[in-house]
Amino acid sequence: MREVWFLAGREVKSFLRTPLGYAILSVYALVSGLVFVTLLFILRQQLLQATPTAGAPRPPVVSLQLSLVAPYFYNVASLLLFVLPFVTMRAFAEERRSRRLEMLVSYPLRAWQLVLGKFLGACGFALLLLSVTVIHLLILALVSAPELTAVLGALLGLVLYAITLVAIGVFLSSLVVGQVEAAVLTLGLFLLGAMVSGVLRPGAAGLGRIIANLSPLYQYQLLSAGLLAPGSLLYFPAVTVLALALTLRGVDLIKWRG
């Protein structure tokens, strides 16, 4: 297992020492920060409108959860669809292009160690991105009183969701040569999944419903909305394990295809 940590540690350090890592971190912090501030302003507006005035009808109650927490998490989850392909693109695709994978394969490593090391490294950086979100939530906790269990549930769901996206991205990276190809493939599939799910979900039945339910973003919405259906809870670990198993197969395929 030490070898896995060697691999994962190097991956995380690599993000923290290259412009790519800082670019990804900056984009995530900037966009998620803008979302947070915008939602705060909208909430402030709603609160002002909800202040009861003499003689006026009683205004609707403003929910912090519905007005800020839920849309914030949904937007951040959507943002991850755009950002994480750039985190996972290098995992195998760039190693193959640069022929570093040949060097790694010549080392006394098992394929699962290689896959797990790359996966955990990308997960480590993805969690670092989510630490920006934790800062936003701490600010929120300082200025208001959000429902702690709902926020923590949504955050845990976001972590599971990000890990699943990373696993899918690492798998797709094992199928192509070159980081640009991997990023385009992953981004394309993530967006396609989100769009298909969005189009099919309303009133879909049969196969359409199954396809719609396969979207990680949809499953995350269910989880963050507090709908703790067993299917949604099992979805993320199951897809993660499946993606890692497929990555192992993908690495095996490299051996057969060269």
Partner: peptide, 8 residues
């Protein structure tokens, strides 16, 4: 590549 086990 075959000799180092990279390719079957």
């Amino acid at each position: 590549r075959i000799l180092i086990g990279y390719q079957v």
